[in-house]
Design a protein around this nucleic acid. Structure first.
Length: 416
DNA sequence: CGTCCACAGGAATGACGGGCGG
DNA sequence: CCGCCCGTCATTCCTGTGGACG
């Protein structure tokens, strides 16, 4: 009845709840632990490969493969941190630069970022890519260093933009007189090689390090390392820990996933006022993570992508469980009309569908219907209630959730 | 066994807002 | 301020294709 009392309770609860977490930062994926269990071999290989730079020699280019959450970035950062310490000791002229290519997004921004790291100022945009590259090269040459460039998530950039960037970078040493460049490419996609020019491949692939997925027991060890730091004593049940490891192992051995599960499970337990994290909390964490992922993804879509999703949703209501492109486009066009928008072309919608497939909101696969053509069968990959929930709250699209497309009612008993 | 559907998906091109050098 | 280039989104035009049908 008294708002002060309510708050007192909240704060008090917060204080008493120190019983689950000691330091949850430890469970974030950008946290770099002191030890990286089960990656000793990779650390050694990478260390051996970069060591020559301490003697003023260029080290081989390195290609690192492995799925997400297998420790590629962590190992690289770990090794380079140690190398940096040695660098100071030996007073070697070495510099590093770490770029996440997926976040950078384009060649331009990668070169701009590289330039900035060696003190060459470049505008956000406005120059040609070639110009930025030339400035970078000139600046690099005059600074007389060994430059180690780490290109993280390089597969994202290559798939989107091709391998021109890599081609330029692998050849840059030929035109440098006073400086040297070594590359470390990190890829999540093991098939990346197929996309590369053979010249680039032979240069970048001088050394290759593969990161196998972790198995359940390895994941358990990794989690265990951090549990002491992250959780209070006795706040985590053995079963919960095992379940986190098992769930993550089932999903291509992703340590990041395991850590997320553990952290969210802890938060769930905290909120439920439990004093120990149990399996049930992990299960709930699993669905909560998935739920958040989908809701976020749906909210961030562009208007037309949302309309495409809604179209598939409506087709589902009309008992079309695997819609084809043409049907979707028909419904989509009607929804556009309903909003007074001019629909995009079918070609464009086709790539929107592919994008939605890539982020996992739709599932699309090409099939042939023989005499009746070749198309894609598409179905929703997320729960219908979620779609309804998210879009009903959208002031523009809310109305369309309940809308009955005419093209469906006319021929409701059309396809299977 | 060839045909031909209903698209897939590549390439070229354009419109547009942002942002620079000169 | 102009002219240029950037990245993004979209259109237009196009060639390619698996397999049921005849």
């Amino acid at each position: 009845m008294n708002s002060n009392n309510i708050l007192d309770e909240v704060f008090e609860k917060f204080f008493n709840n120190v019983k689950i977490f000691k330091d949850r930062e430890v469970l974030r994926h950008d946290y770099l632990p002191d030890r990286l269990p089960h990656r000793e071999e990779q650390i050694k290989r990478l260390g051996e490969t970069v060591a020559p730079v301490l003697k003023d020699a260029k080290c081989s280019n390195i290609f690192i493969y492995g799925k997400t959450g297998t420790g590629k970035t962590a190992v690289t950062q770990y090794v380079l941190n140690h190398l940096e310490a040695k660098t100071k000791e030996f007073n070697a002229p070495i510099r590093f630069h770490f770029i996440n290519c997926r976040l950078a997004g384009t060649e331009y921004r990668v070169f701009a970022s590289l330039s900035q790291s060696i003190g060459v100022r470049v505008p956000f945009t406005g120059l040609s890519v070639g110009e930025v590259f030339d400035r970078f090269r000139a600046g690099l040459d005059s600074s007389k260093i060994i430059f180690i460039i780490v290109l993280d998530e390089i597969d994202a950039l290559i798939k989107a933009r091709g391998d021109i960037l890599l081609y330029e970078l692998t050849r840059i040493n030929e035109t440098l007189r006073n400086s040297k460049v070594s590359l470390i490419g990190i890829s999540n996609d093991l098939r990346l090689k197929e996309f590369l020019d053979p010249r680039v491949l032979s240069s970048l692939g001088e050394e290759e390090i593969v990161f196998r997925p972790y198995d359940a027991s390895e994941l358990k060890n990794i989690l265990f390392e951090r549990v002491h730091l992250a959780f209070c004593d006795e706040a985590l049940s053995e079963g919960a820990l095992g379940l986190c490891a098992a769930l993550a192992a089932a999903e291509h051995g992703d340590a990041r996933r395991a850590l997320d599960l553990l952290r969210v499970a802890g938060e769930v337990a905290e909120r439920k006022d439990a004093n120990i994290v149990v399996e049930e909390h992990v299960r709930e964490a699993e669905s909560r993570i998935e739920h958040n992922r989908v809701v976020e993804a749906l909210r961030n879509l562009t208007l037309h992508s949302k309309l495409v999703i809604l179209s598939v949703f409506h087709l589902g209501r009309a008992n079309v469980h695997r819609a084809i492109t043409g049907e979707i486009y028909e419904v989509y066009s009607e929804l556009c009309e309903e909003l007074g928008l001019t629909p995009l072309t079918q070609r464009r919608v086709s790539t929107l569908i592919n994008e939605l497939d890539a982020v996992g909101l739709l599932n699309a696969r090409v099939i042939s219907m023989g005499r009746y053509g070749r198309t894609k069968k598409i179905r929703l990959e997320v729960m219908r209630t979620l779609i309804r929930g998210v879009f009903t709250n959208d002031n523009r699209l809310g109305r369309l959730v309940k809308y009955e497309p005419k093209c469906l009612s006319k021929q409701a008993s059309g396809r299977r």
